[in-house]
Structure formats: C-alpha cells, structure tokens
Design a binder for these strands. Structure first.
Length: 537
RNA sequence: GGCCCCAUCGUCUAAUGGCCAGGACAGCAGGCUUUCAAUCUGCUAAUAGGGGUUCGAUUCCCCUUGGGGCCGCCA
C-alpha cells in the first residue's frame, strides 16, 4: 500500500461535477460517481455541478437526459448548478449553459485559438487509412496512435483541401514529454505522451470531442476537483496536455475504482440490471441504494454499516476510498433494502407498495367524487381541508368488487414488513388477501404425516372455535387465546396451526394464521375454512 | 500487442511495522417458532507466489503471477 496523499482543500471554492452523456439510462456506476462528487462537495461546503455531455448528437437523447436527472433527484443527489428537469435551455447556476450542445460558441473560440497558435491542425486522413495504421502498429508491437501524417501540411494546401470540402477533423499536436500527476486516491501516476500520438480534439471548428470539451468546460466552470471513474485515468494525460496548451490550471484528480460485475469486468448490461431506474422499479429504496453505493469503494473505518445521506456527508472522505474495483453484490443490497423497509413507518411503506398492488391488478383506487379538493392550498376552506385530510383513500378489490380503505391495506403490509426484501415482492406475498377463492389442495393443507381424516378434524375444530368468537372480538389476541389451547391438546401444535394457516393463505410460507385471520375478519376466515373442508369431502 | 491501474475470507472491507488478521453480507448449524421471515447464538472462510529491508511484516521495496481499464471522427 502506498502512502496516502492528502488532498489539500485550499481556500479556493470546492467545485465538482458530474458529466454524464445522455446515451443511456442513469447507470448505477454513474450514480455512484455522482454520489461521491456530491458527498465531497457537501463535506467541503462546495458546489456540485451537473453538466450534460451531449456532443454526440447521434446517440444523445432527451429521454435519457430526463431519466438521468429524475433518478439523481430520486436518489437525493441534488445539483447546485445544472439543467432544470424537463426544461430545455433552462438552468440554475451562473456558468451555463450546462449542456454541451448549447456551448458551441465557447468551444469555437478555443478551437480557433489552438489552430491559430499552431497547437492543433486539420487532418484529412480517411478512416481506412487510420485503421490500416492502427493494425500495422499493433502488429509491430507498438501502441496504436496517429503518427502525424497531416501534421506538416502547409497552410495553402490545408485551405485548398478545406475549400474542396474534403472531410477533415482537428488533431492536437501532442508534445512528447513526461506527464506526472497526483491522484488523490492513487498517488503519483506517470505517462509518456510520445505513446499517445496526435489525438483528435474536434470534428470541426464548432464540434469539440470529449477530451477538449471536458477541458474547456472544467476550466470555464471553475471545477476544482475532477472525481470520476478509473476508466478515465488514461484520458488524464491528454487533458493535462490540453490544459497546458490552453494555459488552464489543472484541477485536482481523483479516480474512483470501478463497479464490477461478478466476472470482475466493468459492470455492464450483460451483467443484468444496471440502470437506477430498474432498481427503482424492482422496489429498492433510494436509502438502500445510496448506502450500498457508498460502501462500494469507501468505508468509514469503523464497523458501522448503515449510513444515511446526512451521515455520509459527515464522515465521507476521498482519502478513505479504495483503489481496487468492487463487485456489486446484490445479496447485500437485498439485506440493506430489507433493513430500510423495516425502518419505515408502516403507513409510509404502504404508500410505496400501493403502486405495485394496483399494477398487478389486485386493487384499484376509488376516487371519492364528493371531494372537490384535490390539491388543497391556503385558500381551501377549513372544513373542506378537514375532510380532505381525514378522508381515507378507498380501493376496490377487483376480484370481489368489495370496497376497502387504506387502513386495511396497511394492516396487511404490517404483517409483511419484516418479510419484504424489495417492494415488487409484495404482490406475490399478499395476493391471497385480495381474491375471493384461493387455490388449495390436500398436500398443501397437510402437516407432516397427517391423514386426510386428521386434517378434516383439525379444520372442524378450528371452525368450531372461531364460530364461537364475536365478530367484534375477532382480533389476533382473542383468536390466538381460543385456538392455542385446542392445539396444545393435540400435542403437535402444527397439526392444527399448519392447516389453519394454509387454508387461509393458500401458501407454504406466509404470516401467521392468527394475524391473517384477524385481518380477514370472521366472515372471510370461516368461509376459507369451509372451502378447505370441501376438498376432503 | 502497448501503456496505465489494482491485489486481505465466496463478496464488501478493517488492521498505514508489533495482541489468536477484526466486522458485515452470503453459506452452514442451532435457539425461538405451524411455515416463511425477523431476531439471538455459534461455525466455516483470507493476507496470490518468490525474494529482500527489519528484532518483527497484511503493511515498505523489487520480481513473478493474476485481474482490470484505456488505446474511436463515443463519452
């Protein structure tokens, strides 16, 4: 382990940025880079800037940009400067525009300057030529790079070619030298730029390519620290070269380890879900995602595992970042997600589960037409406001047409709160509460080696006991108090309790029979017991 | 192929020269339990290999091996 280099946070303002290109949905890796930038900014009273790198017009899509913005916000990663969600050409912050596609005026100036100062030149080589050169260099064991064929083209020829409309790009005259920079996480990193070659910096005078655009924007936006993925290490010498050519100071660098798939390669689509959106849909909570992303490559140095955003801000530091890539462990995510689900107030959790129940077709919301107030405000009449607040949300059970209110659903969610790993699982866990008839068979109702006759006797006994309970007294405690002594008499409690629970839930695994019965109510409970008995006729 | 980066249990990691290499997830076993979960207890499991430096190396240096990243008119 090399000695840690401590980043000096000078009195200059800390300004960091996330620079995603909108060519796909927000990737979990991008989100983690965003998080680390965000935490670093908050920790150091700095600003977190969001810049959209949409110079690739073919691949960039507004729908992707919206997805990136919305999901960052959902995760609680808020930017101080950057685009406004859903609104083109609108920004917060004074260094905009924050979309590269809207900054061509700025780039044009610098590209012109570079050419005028003879630090960059037009290249008319064809793709075929370039590819052949590439293959050749690899075949003789050299790094593939541009060898500088067009570098010495005289000015007359260049303007002639341009007039003829020959396709051209702009390349940087890479000076051969040693570049050494200090990475906050890794320490000293050295490169020999003679191995880089004259790399491309723009498609034309108005269209910078990645390395140039980044350098210009980071300077113009006064970025103090560039915190990004390890995959950018080899871009860093190019960017330093451009900064030197343009007379820009270099920011401080920090290259984060990558998030890896189970095969230890960079996490990508072929490994499964990689978009934040997908995790959201699956029912992972932002708290859980933040917690696990933070611990991929960082740890507080204590044995504490649970961290909220605000506690992360308190304890985060780049110096405690790991150097090696980390495999994304979905089982650990499930554990953390389950933990946060258990922490939620049940009412809140119910709200989160509702969309899944509705989407599955089990229930649908019934709007109360009597209430005009949908969005109460200051002018809302107090009486209406009271009604609005107290009126319970109502739902229709689609299978039975029965109307229920949210409190009933909350009771069900309460039973499954500690069993839930991700929200999307709620449907298959609780579906039996929302159907008229459940699927039952003899083997499901059988506990161990019980005979059919024994099962029937158990069901009879259960029905008899339950029938004796007043509907208003049909609570978990009362049911339990009535059933348990009977179960004890048999000796093996399972002989009574397993068929009881199975008859109510239709499942091998579920919450306990007493609580299910209490939620179902006396009428439905007895109906289900009777239906179970039918099987043994 | 070239350059660069990295290397502690299966996984995420702690231990920045000095107590049996600690914790968490997963796995396994058990307690509680009709089931599943939750919870509690316990167990399995790691310093890639080889050289140095040192009284002493997970830790510092070198080599090997292994893994990864980048080598675009993508970002």
């Amino acid at each position: 382990m090399s000695p840690r280099i401590h980043s000096k946070i000078e009195n200059t303002q800390v300004r960091v940025r996330l620079a995603p290109s909108p060519t796909g949905f927000l990737h979990i890796g991008t989100a983690r880079v965003a998080l680390f930038n965000f935490l670093f900014a908050r920790k150091n009273n700095g600003k977190f800037i969001l810049r959209i790198e949409d110079t690739d017009k073919e691949r960039s899509k507004i729908e992707y940009e919206n997805d990136i913005l919305e999901n960052l916000k959902w995760l609680g990663i808020e930017w101080d400067e950057g685009p406004v969600i859903g609104e083109r050409s609108k920004y917060k912050g004074n260094y905009g525009p924050y979309r590269q596609s809207e900054r061509s005026e700025i780039y044009r100036r610098y590209i012109k300057k570079l050419i005028e100062e003879d630090k960059a030149y037009y290249c008319f080589c064809t793709k075929e030529e370039l590819e052949a050169q590439r293959q050749y260099l690899i075949s003789i064991g050299q790094p593939p790079r541009y060898l500088g064929k067009c570098r010495g083209l005289d000015k007359k020829k260049v303007s002639q070619f341009l007039k003829e409309g020959r396709p051209a790009i702009i390349r940087f005259k890479t000076p051969a030298k040693k570049i050494v920079f200090v990475d906050i996480i890794r320490g000293k990193i050295e490169f020999d730029t003679s191995l880089i070659g004259d790399f491309s910096i723009a498609k034309d005078e108005n269209s910078p390519l990645y390395n140039l655009a980044v350098v210009i924007d980071d300077f113009e936006m006064k970025i103090s620290h560039v915190i990004r993925g390890e995959d950018h290490i080899s871009n860093t010498p190019k960017q330093i070269l451009l900064q030197q050519a343009l007379g820009f100071p270099s920011p401080q660098w920090a290259h984060l380890p990558l998030i890896l798939g189970p095969d230890r390669s960079k996490l990508s689509k072929r490994h499964g879900a990689v978009s934040v959106n997908q995790y959201k849909k699956d029912g992972y909570l932002p708290e859980a995602l933040i917690n696990i992303m933070a611990f991929l490559g960082w740890n507080p140095g204590t044995e504490r595992e649970i961290y909220s955003m605000s506690s992360l801000i308190k304890d985060f530091s780049l110096e405690r970042c790991q150097k090696g890539g980390a495999i994304f462990n979905i089982k650990r995510l499930n554990w953390i997600n389950g933990f946060y689900i258990r922490q939620y107030p049940t009412q809140k959790l119910t709200e989160l589960c509702l969309p899944y129940l509705e989407k599955s077709g089990l229930i649908e919301e019934v709007k109360n037409e009597k209430l005009e107030v949908k969005n109460p405000n200051k002018n809302t009449h107090p009486e209406e406001l009271r009604l609005f607040k107290e009126e319970k949300r109502k739902f229709r059970i689609k299978d039975t047409n029965e109307i229920i209110d949210i409190d009933w659903i909350t009771k069900i969610i309460a039973l499954y709160q500690e069993r839930l790993k991700k929200l999307s699982e709620i449907t298959e866990l609780v579906d039996f509460f929302f159907v008229d008839k459940i699927k039952l068979d003899k083997d499901l109702l059988r506990w161990k080696e019980m005979t059919d006759e024994e099962i029937k006797q158990s069901l009879d006994a259960i029905e008899k006991v339950l029938s004796g309970i007043e509907p208003s007294q049909f609570t978990k405690e009362t049911i339990e108090k009535s059933i348990l002594p009977v179960a004890e008499e048999i000796g093996d409690r399972g002989k009574l309790l397993w068929p009881f629970r199975a008859a109510l839930s239709g499942k091998k695994a579920s919450a306990g029979p007493f609580e299910i019965a209490a939620v179902l109510g006396k009428k439905k409970t007895i109906k289900r017991i009777k239906e179970a008995k039918e099987i043994f006729k």
